[in-house]
Design a protein around this nucleic acid. Structure first.
Length: 772
DNA sequence: TTGTTACTATTTTTT
DNA sequence: ATAGTAACAA
């Protein structure tokens, strides 16, 4: 991913650190240790400084992963620790895989022996399973995904007679998630915050939710960390055990750690104190899900005697790209500060383009890509990075019509698909009948006549006797409580589960899985479905079974599904990559397109509203991440019109555009498909955005009388162009290409607020309308 | 109990 | 514009 091309000129220009003797030792080490070949001084230092706390500030494209893996290789090959004595934590499975591969290439067989290389969550599961009893769980506890936990919360909200409309389960979910990220158990939730849901019942709901999880022998994502922390805090002996086990600790993407993870790391690091955190405060983009940039900013205080090593030599991008990114990020105040530099050439400038709307943006980028394609540019080396996933659609539409192959990264994940979840629910229940949430999911899928009414009865019975739904079902089919029809089909279902369970030990698991899907009627359900997606769903199910074959048994497979699985079907071939800026972190491409740089979208309005300046800075870091993904070319664009929630708006260009240094950016004109019309309008626009000053962007409320006599309130973001630049007058009737006829409500600079006869009120640039 | 229709609220990023 | 939900009819 972030491999710097192995440069033949081994010793780098990086300012040397340490005493002369240290430097001399390092130099000798470089010739003695072949794996240090090609590392620059700072990188070498980061690899060799194995003892004590170390913070490696690794800027974008500075060979972070390489340092991390080489460091592990170094520790292993020097016999400083055995593979199972190194704790290496990452955030994503992708990163874990990457690291495993790299270490494998370096050391060979050692990878098998690195059981403690994984994501925070995966390691959490591992530790929790070992000591489940201490956490009040059975070691076969299930891990709830978002779906399950949401369903559970919904049940609780209903049970409390709280209005679902006013207090949506989603909100409770994110609230509890936030608490868990901060390491707060129900009793520790500050009272003030507890009131932020359902008039003060938030805290109780949280407690009830946790209680219910225990009853179900289940944990959710947040618990994996929270419970692990509790385990260690309540059992100091156990913690000591792990202290002596983990000789070296490595943490990737430290800037993304949340408080719970931070607490955990501090607990674990109390052992040897050999903790090495790698991160980049300029790439902290997960604040919204609880990540604390502060963790990395505070590192030196938290770990006294910590050594900070900066990696600033960039091996990825050209000079222009690096300069633009650096300049953008200097607008942030809260940063440790790094100066990236490169020895490579300036390369090509970034390009900037203004387009009419998202469709034209997609058309334009599509054309650019086709042009690149004829120049033999690999599609795999092209990426479109968007702020929000809804932007992807325009590109997908366009690429489909062009016949341009693409892949969406980080879209709906494989295991999140309906059919995969359903299938897994069947497998789950077969393995563990007391998994109520999964049982509930499939009890009436496919339709068996076991809907709300029957489920209600089951719930009551289960609650009353405090048994699982499945057990309740078993008891109820023996009684007269259910009507004959549902009773019959319920019995049939239970019998099938009995059969399947009988075969778990004897039958090969893939065969059993197939049988479950067939016998249950699930396969048939999709075969009979004539919707266009039904076929892909069936194929996905086949893929699931195929993937399952790579595991030893059903249980082993299911463990992976909840945490690890992200097999992507169309990852092969030469394709353009489409993804969000978030998903792009850690990746690199020759050419990167950055569409949609508009106020409100990027920076996103919500970040601005909810997080204020901190939010803005995080958005800016997102922009920094985006630009630094590019190795050779970066193309930024923005549109003048975009639909938001179904209606059209005319956003201003993103303030980030004006934070780019003009000397590194080329302003491109759109190839004019419409004769001179486009370019003349464009001139107008480019003047407008380069002069706009955003430091105190006014948002003015305008109140005007519409012709119909009603008061219309609209929010007009005024541009700073001085004086009216148009000759239009309020009340004038005009025509607009897209919106049709309308009359002018107000004029702000060259922006018109118009009441359209058919499409409502819009703000439009004067150059887009004509008199009528 | 199921399927339909109408309405409503919801639109960022996700381990 | 869309999805998800609630109310209603068959």
């Amino acid at each position: 991913m972030t491999t710097p091309k192995a440069k033949s000129s081994a010793p780098q220009e990086t300012p040397a650190t340490g005493s002369l003797s240290e430097r001399a030792q390092r130099r000798t080490a470089q010739t003695a240790l072949p794996y240090l070949q090609g590392l620059n001084e700072a990188q070498t230092e980061a690899v060799l400084t194995t003892e004590g706390p170390v913070l490696v500030l690794a800027g974008a494209g500075t060979g972070k992963t390489r340092v991390l893996t080489t460091r592990i290789g170094h520790i292993l090959s020097h016999g400083k620790a055995r593979p199972n004595e190194i704790l290496a934590v990452t955030f994503t499975n992708k990163a874990t895989r990457e690291m495993k591969n790299r270490i494998g290439q370096m050391i060979g067989e050692a990878v098998e022996g690195m059981p403690w290389l994984g994501t925070f969550h995966a390691i959490g599961v591992k530790i929790l399973r070992r000591h489940a009893e201490l956490a009040g769980l059975k070691s076969n506890f299930t891990i709830l995904d978002m779906d399950d936990s949401l369903r559970l919360m919904k049940q609780l909200i209903k049970a409390e007679n709280i209005d679902e409309k006013r207090w949506p389960p989603r909100r409770l979910s994110s609230l509890i998630d936030g608490w868990k990220n901060r390491g707060l158990t129900p009793d520790k939730v500050p009272n003030g915050e507890a009131f932020s849901f359902a008039d003060g019942r938030g805290k109780d709901l949280y407690a009830a939710y946790q209680k219910r999880l225990k009853e179900l022998n289940a944990v959710d994502f947040g618990d994996l960390l929270l419970e692990m922390n509790r385990l260690f805090l309540e059992n100091p002996d156990l913690l000591k055990q792990y202290h002596s086990r983990f000789k070296y600790i490595l943490v990737d993407e430290y800037q993304d750690t949340n408080i719970a993870q931070y607490i955990w790391l501090r607990l674990i690091a109390q052992g040897t104190g050999n903790i090495c955190c790698v991160g980049d405060d300029d790439q902290a983009i997960y604040g919204w899900r609880g990540a604390e940039v502060d963790n990395i900013l505070r590192f030196e205080k938290d770990f006294p005697g910590a050594k900070t090593i900066r990696l600033e030599r960039n091996y990825r991008s050209t000079g222009h790209i690096l300069a633009a990114a650096s300049s953008l990020i200097t607008h942030n105040q809260e940063r440790l500060g790094k100066t990236l530099h490169t020895d490579d050439g300036l390369g090509e400038k970034l390009t900037l383009k203004c387009l009419w709307d998202d469709a034209e943006e997609a058309r334009n980028i599509g054309d650019e890509i086709e042009a690149l394609q004829t120049k033999k540019h690999a599609l795999n080396e092209i990426a479109i990075l968007v702020r929000a996933s809804f932007q992807m659609r325009a590109f997908e539409d366009r690429f489909v019509t062009l016949g341009l192959p693409y892949r969406v990264i980080g879209g709906p994940r494989f295991y999140e698909r309906l059919e995969i979840k359903d299938a897994c629910a069947y497998f789950d229940v077969a393995l563990n009948p007391s998994n109520d949430l999964k049982f509930e999911r499939i009890i009436n899928t496919p339709k068996r006549g076991l809907a709300t009414a029957t489920l209600e009865v089951l719930h009551h019975h289960a609650r009353a006797r405090s048994i699982s739904l499945y057990e309740a079902a078993q008891e109820l089919v023996e009684t007269e409580e259910l009507r004959p029809k549902p009773r019959g089909s319920l019995r049939a279902l239970l019998n099938k589960f009995d059969e399947w369970r009988r075969d778990i030990e004897t039958m090969p698991h893939t065969e059993l899985a197939e049988r479950i899907l067939d016998d249950s009627g699930y396969t048939q359900m999709w075969q009979q479905d004539k919707s266009p997606q039904a076929q892909t769903r069936l194929e996905n199910l086949k893929e699931l079974i195929r993937y399952m074959g790579e595991f030893e048994n059903l249980a082993g497979f299911m463990e992976h599904v909840s945490l690890v699985m992200d097999a992507d079907a169309n990852s092969d071939g030469d394709r353009v990559n489409i993804m969000t800026l978030h998903a792009a972190k850690g990746l690199e491409f020759d050419t990167v397109f950055l569409p949609g740089w508009e106020e409100g979208l990027f920076p996103h309005q919500r970040s601005l509203d909810e997080e204020g300046r901190a939010g803005l800075e995080e958005e800016r870091r997102l922009g920094y991440v985006g630009i630094t993904r590019a190795k050779k070319q970066a193309h930024i664009s923005f549109t003048q019109n975009r639909r938001v929630h179904g209606n059209w708006q005319s956003p201003l260009p993103s303030r980030f555009i004006d934070e780019l240094p003009a000397s590194h950016v080329d302003i491109k004109e759109e190839e004019s498909n419409y004769g001179g019309y486009v370019s003349s309008r464009y001139d107008n626009m480019s003047m407008n955005y380069s002069k706009t000053n955003y430091t105190r962007q006014p948002t003015t409320k305008t109140q005007k009388q519409s012709p119909a006599g009603k008061t219309i309130e609209g929010t007009v973001i005024s541009s700073r162009t001085s004086g009216p630049t148009t000759s239009y007058e309020v009340g004038e009737r005009i025509f607009h290409q897209k919106f049709g006829y309308g009359s002018i409500l107000s004029i702000t600079g060259d922006k018109l607020s118009i009441a359209f006869e058919k499409s409502g009120n819009k703000n439009v640039l004067a150059s887009f309308v004509e008199r009528h």
